[in-house]
Computed example of a mutant assay.
Amino acid sequence: MLALKGIRQYISCLNIAVDDNVYIGKLDNKKQKSIGVYSRPTSGPANIAIGGLECTTYDTKPVSLLIHWSKSKDETERTAYNLFEKLRSITSLTIGDTHINYLRLMVPEPQDVGSDDAGVYEYVIWLDFIYERNR
């Protein structure tokens, strides 16, 4: 299983936001210049190989990254694109003891979702981690 905690640690290592500003789950008083890592709901059938689960070699973890940055639209946009480019240029990735076979960006670019009630601009990046199942 690929857990959000491991993904959070990986995103933190990209050095976009300081470590304590990369979080999973709900953070009631979000700090500026933070990134949230969330599970993303999906639909459709499970991917199970012929022969059953023991023959299934990979699984998918759909994730949404929320870039909650600053009251500067320009700074927030540049930060979101910086993260997007780092994700797009990955050549090899292992999170914990889980090998990631493929990182599928589900949007062509970071998506502008406006600002929160405090005027802090936000962008979202949807991606899928396709990873080797530990059997």
Rank of each mutant, 00 (worst) to 15 (best):
S12G: 13
D19R: 10
D20W: 14
D20S: 14
V22R: 00
Y23F: 15
D28V: 09
K30D: 03
K33V: 00
Y38T: 09
S39L: 14
S39D: 09
G44Y: 07
P45E: 15
A49L: 04
I50A: 14
I50C: 11
G51K: 08
L53P: 04
L53N: 12
T57G: 11
K61Q: 12
P62F: 14
L65M: 06
L66V: 12
L66M: 07
I67E: 00
S70M: 07
K71M: 05
S72W: 00
E75Y: 03
T76K: 02
E77M: 11
E77D: 05
R78T: 09
R78S: 09
R78M: 10
Y81Q: 04
N82A: 13
L83K: 01
F84I: 14
K86P: 10
S89P: 05
S89R: 13
L93K: 10
G96P: 09
D97H: 08
H99G: 13
L103P: 03
L103I: 14
R104A: 14
L105H: 08
M106K: 04
Q111Y: 02
Q111M: 12
A118W: 03
E122G: 01
W126Q: 09
D128Q: 03
F129K: 01
I130T: 03
I130W: 06
E132D: 15
R135W: 14
